[in-house]
């Protein structure tokens, strides 16, 4: 047994060096050269200043921007240091109450939209930092944004169309639009200065 423990100790030391340090550092080196933007966090820059990450969702509240999905990450939502889902069961009173409240808020915020809000805007995501919304989640907000920015609806719809990504290879995942990309495109249509 003592012999096994000695071998185990040495095996642990060697494999920690190899698999715990050399492997991740090698990947880091290659990634740094081949995929510098992705490996450092997919930062999005506006005028040279980092304003967010392409892959991480953030909280949007102003009427003139697209809003992301409800989030259970942290108390205010979209806390990247406290990611996670609501973990409420499908028959949870809390969950149903939240959906009812979200319907009421969304209808108040989007008075020109006559239909019911789509499911994506009524349910919290798995990560709490979902960067995307579905095309129907985006279209539901289009009238509000057009009114808030005093631009024609078709220009908002054009932004949605331009930034909707189809399923990868036509069958992987779901169609989606990145909320930050949508909002940056809106600001390019009519400037951020009208804040």
């Amino acid at each position: 047994m003592l012999k096994f423990l000695l071998v185990a100790l040495r095996m642990t030391a060697v494999t920690v060096v190899l698999l715990g340090f050399l492997y991740p550092l090698l990947i880091m080196g290659i990634a740094h050269l081949a995929f510098p933007a992705q490996s450092s966090g997919s930062f999005v820059r506006v005028g040279g200043r980092i304003v967010g990450s392409r892959i991480i969702g953030e909280r949007w509240t102003q009427a003139r921007y697209f809003h992301g999905r409800p989030s259970a990450a942290g108390s205010a939502g979209y806390d990247p240091l406290s990611t996670g889902a609501s973990n409420l069961g499908p028959d949870s009173k809390k969950l149903i109450a939240r959906v009812v409240a979200r319907i009421a808020t969304l209808r108040k915020e989007n008075p020109r939209e006559s239909g019911m809000p789509p499911i994506g805007l009524l349910t919290a995501s798995g990560s709490g930092i979902d960067p995307d919304i579905s095309p129907s989640d985006a279209r539901y907000q289009a009238e509000r944004i057009a009114a808030a920015r005093a631009i024609p609806l078709r220009r908002v719809l054009a932004v949605i169309t331009a930034h909707t990504k189809p399923r990868t290879f036509g069958f992987l995942g779901e169609p989606r639009a990145n909320v930050l990309a949508l909002n940056l495109a809106l600001d390019r249509v009519n400037g951020a200065s009208t804040r």
Binding site: P24, H32, F35, Q38, G41, F43, E58, N183
Partner: peptide, 30 residues
Amino acid sequence: LVLTAQGVPQNLNAYRTVTTIAGGKQTIVG
């Protein structure tokens, strides 16, 4: 390598706090 090409971070940088275009603060994990 495929994962990081698709956007999974691979670095040893400290977390970065940025000001968003809506004026909020966001911390990006590394």
